[in-house]
Design a protein around this nucleic acid. Structure first.
Lengths: 334, 334
DNA sequence: TTGAAAGCGCTACCAG
DNA sequence: CTGGTAGCGCTTTCAA
């Protein structure tokens, strides 16, 4: 039962003070090369693997844990490929700094808010949520750094994500090229997730910022293509499922081009209407296989960058990149 | 900048000793009801949310973190629905005990072994790996509790998982009901993941315990159905992908029943050979939709139970349940 | 550039 | 059932 060596043990073996060992690990530039080498050798020979984290936490107030606030049930987040890629990126960044992950659900139950309030973490990364989510205020009130993917923007919270409005405009322009009767199939407007078709809805009526931004971009593309937004049917799918895309498409039987909020919905649309021009979002493998025109972005990179910023490894969050993938759907000519 | 109250603050406010507050949180049954109530009231009024974890860790040696050792790259694990469900279960158990998650990759690089050796966690949950994985020894050598899903069995490591051999036998019996020329499409035999077809391979040649157990179960079903195992072609798919199932099926064009190691492979087989009798494994949603006969098990439950055991919340790991889902493929009569 | 002292907040141990 | 004492391993602060 040999207990692990402490900093004091290393100091004794190296013939220096405990402080010199501490400095060697925390501010190596502050100690002389000779000290650094003595400490390194002593640590090696004793099998010392670095400062004990609990002690360091107690003294410094850092927890070495990152809080990740996901959707309602953790399982749902895992089933969403985009959220998953985001989480992978976060996990990767945590690995680099030996940081633990605390996965926190975000149902609207008070207990989830309490959990965030009291979480023993150094900061939070949130998955996009509704504009009026009380979680936003709670996260900020902890005084810890907070970063959210996809919005909403909120005072004190750093954003990571692409310019959804600009990307939606770009993919909309591509999708409407030869269209006479376009339509949109969108994510739900709010947490009620009601399936309904509305002509020319106000994007800002959506409490999901991502939904709102994409609608606004589509609207701009539609208007630039010479249509009146109020003539365009927008079907809000109750869930981001292929089957819902198909169901929506059947309600839009007279339309010749359909802009979709996700590849999943777009593939469903193609299932029901193989003839129609369709655009998706996210550049999934299935989208590539189906030849779908779509918006590509790396949620993995965004997760990694968000985590790095929260953990203090990175000073700034690099601008998230996106690109348009033009493929055979929609057909090049009508 | 009001700093958070400490146990001593609560003790002072409640008019008791610090120790009584500590006991109230850690062994409530040891303190009188009166004390408990005084402490509760004082904590409430001060906004004390429980013992500081770093201090508790430092004193008790507990880290309040659980190590989860997954496959080579974390991303791969997230893309595997079964590993994902397992991880969801673990995450849920961690939530209950306010425990952080440290996700650790398991490539064969030494750095991953070092990471596990030095991980600041109270125990490990491992995802199934090859029988000769050095990670097993490393995890055990930490002296911390270790539980592995799916095997291999290893001294000092707790197992969680179903009896793959028995389940394979059961689903094999169902799948071979009217077969004259059966075949098997299996997971890879070892980490080389070579795609090949072998007649009557020795199950124990597989370094993946799950692969070996399922093959052994299939073999028993095959032999009981009156075939010689050495006459049965077993195609090892290089990856657990639908496309690989289809590719394998094309190589088994003369076969009338195919037992598969996963739903994914089975669906691929059906893509290429809609006429053939097929069985899968895992009871995915797609399997249900396709009417596939398969083995159902809850990796979520297994993850939750494994984590509870490692964290000391549960004394024993409940036996993992499985059931046979008999559906229209294979057809009831030839 | 190095070091001594103090103490972060808590719980193991022992005493009553 | 309750409480005092000691100290977990480290880093902040101050001094040399």
């Amino acid at each position: 039962m040999s207990t692990r060596p402490t900093m004091a043990d290393v100091a004794a073996a190296a013939g220096v003070s405990t402080m010199s060992v501490s400095y060697t690990y925390n501010q190596p530039s502050r100690v002389s090369k000779a000290t650094r080498e003595k400490v390194g050798a002593a640590a090696e020979s004793l099998g010392y693997t670095g400062p004990n984290r609990a002690a360091r936490s107690l003294r410094s107030g850092k927890t070495n844990n990152l809080g990740v606030v996901l959707t309602e049930k953790l399982t749902y987040s895992f089933e969403n490929p985009q959220a998953r890629a985001f989480l992978s990126g976060i996990a990767e960044a945590c690995l680099d700094t030996d940081t633990g992950l605390v996965l926190l659900p975000n149902s609207r139950v008070g207990v989830d808010l309490d959990r965030v309030r009291d979480a023993h973490v150094d900061g939070f990364v949130l998955w996009t949520t509704v504009v009026d989510d009380p979680m936003l205020e709670v996260a900020v009130s902890t005084g810890k750094p907070v970063c959210i993917q996809g919005g909403p923007s909120f005072p004190g919270i750093q954003l990571v994500g692409i310019d959804d409005r600009a990307a939606a405009h770009a993919v909309g322009v591509a999708g409407l090229k030869n269209s006479k009767h376009p339509a949109v199939v969108s994510f739900p407007r709010n947490r009620d997730r009601i399936g309904e078709t509305v002509f020319g809805p106000d994007p800002d009526d959506s409490t999901f910022p991502v939904t709102a931004a994409r609608l606004a971009g589509y609207r701009r593309a539609v208007v630039e293509a010479g249509f009146a937004w109020s003539d365009i049917p927008v079907t809000f799918a109750p869930a981001n499922l292929r089957s819902e895309g198909a169901a929506a498409a059947r309600q839009l039987a007279d339309r010749d081009a359909i802009l979709c909020s996700s590849d999943e919905l777009a593939l469903g649309v193609l299932d029901a209407r193989p003839d129609v021009a369709v655009t998706g979002w996210d550049d999934s493998e299935a989208a590539e296989a189906a030849g779908l025109t779509t918006v590509a972005q790396s949620l993995y990179d965004q997760g990694r960058d968000a985590a790095r910023w929260v953990l203090g490894t990175a000073e700034v969050i690099p601008r998230a990149q996106w690109s348009l993938k033009i493929r055979r759907s929609p057909p090049a000519d009508g």
